[in-house]
Design a protein around this nucleic acid. Structure first.
Lengths: 132, 132, 132, 132
DNA sequence: GTGGTCTAGACCACT
DNA sequence: GTGGTCTAGACCACA
């Protein structure tokens, strides 16, 4: 029955980023952006695994790590929910916070490349626009 | 003789980014920004390894990969030099090109976080400013 | 009618100990300590499930297992009673026996921690005292 | 060459406690009791797996979780070490702290069994003595 | 139905 | 040599 619901997760195969990491980061963003609200149920391990043709253990690992992180809660025998008060509060509810690390890295690289701020901002602006 | 010169490379231990990748990316930026000019000599494998307390094989791997890439050249008995006409022309001379991947990643994350362009640009601007 | 009586059972959600185990152990202790005497009636599956917001099947499983164990008896139309001569004689009437496993585990942990007996006993004494 | 060193870990098959949990708890105790000191190297995943005839992934999971906990550190390509300043400071260096939860559980069970303190202490004393 | 644990075995990345 | 990731598939525990 859940086979017609839109896919929550997606992965890029061939990336050097491990699949489980991709899924974790996506889940964090889905919660941070409100696309997954506290109390919402997540699709079952098996469903996600089938949709993305992954091994269930990979998905299980993701849910497990997110539970440790406090983002998800387990209801025994009933699956996973988004935690009511996600403990990763440093990030959640502060969407920019999740974007910051990547932009800080970009800033550092720009500095090492001796690129000035205007050039960087113009490039970022262009990339953001092209993406839409 | 290079033991008193300022360190060319630096690494962050504990990062998930492999050491050899950190070094490769730094070398590319140093060349792209002109801080290392064609013909300049690079510190010996042994010196770098000692300075950063790395396994020499790790540094050697970096130099080998950069030689294959065409950025460095090996001069027998003289160590590694920056190539006269670095073949990795896609990057060198096009400094923005080296910044692009990280900004593209940021743009993707922003999209998943449903952050609008203005917010992203403002955040990036702030980070660039604070860094100075 | 039992809706105003004090709760016989309690559970800790979020514990790693399964709910049905928590209930079984509690029932055993209640009988062993005489708080539930032979012939006493137990609250209905439905009442317990409602009080603790559990799936009735979970409670039913508990009663079934305790019946198999000989601690409870089923009286048609009257629900569950504490058995007249509980067959789990190894435990009942030997209250210390029910405490033993946990203390044995503590002793093993103490050994691995290389804690001497006096330290352990002093700690246990303190915990018992503070609890009152 | 490490095949003659004494076994650091041991497991009880047939216990309901998962193997990886048994190993985690043991590692914590080994560090807490000083049998493993900060900076000490741990046996490789493969060695432990072979000694205990486990799947390497099971051991890997243990090391992974202990690294997250801050008890261990990973040296890339060189294995795991006991962290210099284990973050699980709440427990480490306070050996009794690791014994406390089990004794608290025992105290709770004693209370439910309506056993008095003296009886409990005598039983614990006996168990500790018999164990030696 | 749910997630958890474990095995067997492959392949990769890092030092 | 080290640990990391993933698959395929089995079996268990819980509600």
């Amino acid at each position: 029955m859940s086979q017609h619901s839109p896919r929550l997760f997606s992965i890029v195969t061939g990336s050097s980023e491990p699949i489980y990491r991709q899924l974790i980061d996506q889940a964090r963003r889905l919660v941070a952006s409100g696309q997954l609200a506290p109390g919402d149920a997540l699709p079952s391990v098996r469903d996600v695994a089938q949709e993305l043709t992954l091994n269930p253990m990979t998905v299980s690992k993701v849910y497990n790590l997110l539970e440790m992180e406090g983002l998800l809660q387990r209801r025994r025998g009933q699956g996973m929910l988004v935690a009511e008060r996600p403990k990763s509060a440093r990030n959640v509810g502060n969407r920019s916070g999740l974007l910051r690390p990547t932009l800080e890295r970009a800033a550092l690289e720009a500095k090492q490349l001796e690129l000035d701020s205007d050039t960087c901002l113009a490039l970022f602006k262009k990339i953001l626009k092209d993406q839409k």
